[in-house]
Design a protein around this nucleic acid. Structure first.
Lengths: 232, 232
DNA sequence: CGCACAGTTCGGCGGCGGCCGAAGTGTCAC
DNA sequence: GTGACACTTCGGCCGCCGCCGAACTGTGCG
């Protein structure tokens, strides 16, 4: 019981970080994987800079966020894949049955719904499209669950991805992540992150305003060639 | 921003349920998948019945717990796989590197470490062993990620499991769940639950005191035959 | 019926925590 | 240097929430 009590306190400590609407709003915004400034987050959540500052202290101290100070700016981002995962799970647990193509999608705007980042991987129609394409080419097996296939590993290596490095990392190699706008899963985990990184590196995708991303002409060609994926 | 604010409030509502040490203790206890009475939980967490009653109200109202009244008892259990998953993720996020074979394992006692339930599936050495065996027999593919194979589906069907039913359910077919005592993953998701159910049904395993389970002689034989799994 | 027991309701206490405005610190631009 | 700006610190206000004991409801048992 002593050990149970200790564990409960630890769980409560993390949960209570996300148990405040303002802090939850911060973390949801940070789910896009970018670093935000304290002021941006304050404006987003509708609180004063003073209030935001305090919240950020707690989130950083609690290990959920990492910060970087640059000049007069305080940049803050999710501390890592684990932290992102916690936020993700909590967020998706609260939207069990939002009607498709409504509200979220409309408000999100065409750009966000088309392609965006979700922490360190791809989301939106692009994200689910990539996963579908990987499945179709048998690079992942997702009839029941999700796993990378041998041919998938070969293909990733051909793109220059360090597959063994991903396997050694303390992180699931592949994982499903529920897409807000599409209501279907996209690819997360080490491979999801690596894929997004490769796409950025090759300039197949670029950050647009906010968390949206756009597919470049090179991206259209590349995605068509590598994955048979046609981007509207 | 309006929609973002709404979402943040929802996330915060769920998180704050687990953001209290007493409620967190309740939910961790309930992770064993059984129904507990209000009094048991109160004693476990070291609070008065009055306090526990209030907490249970909130947890039920928040959708994390389901309750069943029987006579003068209030039985309460995790509302479903989603709720269990949230608790699981939060719990495993707080124990990043507990030294193996220490504390938790010792305190847990030989029984718990050997075999127990984790929500609706198997955990402990038995749980981890089953997953290893499934992997070895190629019933699941878990080189990178986790997915059920075609031969795995056939095998499950031969045990009388309704595989198509599992596939249709709103729940991951297979999922990994980090084992507290073993520090390795065991099998969760629809298949993990079905497997545990089959084992109970065939009387291969039985509930012992608390959340621990014991393997019967029939279980030893069956596990050896079906999975080549030798139980110490 | 009377007692024991599980759980609930109520009232009240105490503290934590979120919020702000105002003042202060440090950075950048000119 | 001067002013704009990003953020922090401080003080104080307010409300919520966790806790309990005591009284109450309802069930089970003899």
């Amino acid at each position: 019981m002593t050990t149970a009590a200790v564990a409960a306190a630890d769980v409560a400590a993390v949960a209570s970080l996300l148990g405040d609407p303002t802090r939850a709003a911060f973390c949801l915004a940070l789910l896009d994987g970018r670093a935000w400034t304290a002021g941006e987050l304050a404006r987003l959540a509708g609180v004063s800079p003073a209030t935001a500052s305090g919240h950020l202290d707690r989130l950083v101290r609690g290990g959920l966020l990492a910060e970087e100070r640059q000049g007069r700016h305080r940049y803050v981002r999710l501390a890592g894949p684990d932290a992102a995962h916690v936020v993700e799970v909590l967020a998706s647990s609260t939207r069990p049955a939002a009607p498709r193509n409504s509200y979220a999608a409309v408000r999100a705007g065409a750009g966000l719904a088309a392609a965006r980042t979700c922490y360190d991987h791809l989301a939106g129609r692009l994200g689910v499209g990539v996963l579908d394409a990987l499945d179709q080419r048998d690079y992942v097996s997702r009839a029941d669950g999700i796993a990378m296939t041998a041919s998938g590993a070969v293909w990733l290596a051909s793109l220059g991805v360090d597959v063994d490095g991903i396997r050694r990392a303390h992180r699931p190699v592949v994982r499903l992540c529920l897409d807000w706008t599409e209501r279907r899963s996209h690819l997360a985990g080490g491979v999801g992150a690596a894929l997004a990184a490769v796409f950025f590196e090759r300039d197949w995708i670029r950050r647009a305003d906010g968390r949206a991303i756009t597919v470049t002409d090179a991206g259209r060609t590349g995605l068509q060639r590598e994955l048979g994926l046609a981007i509207g």
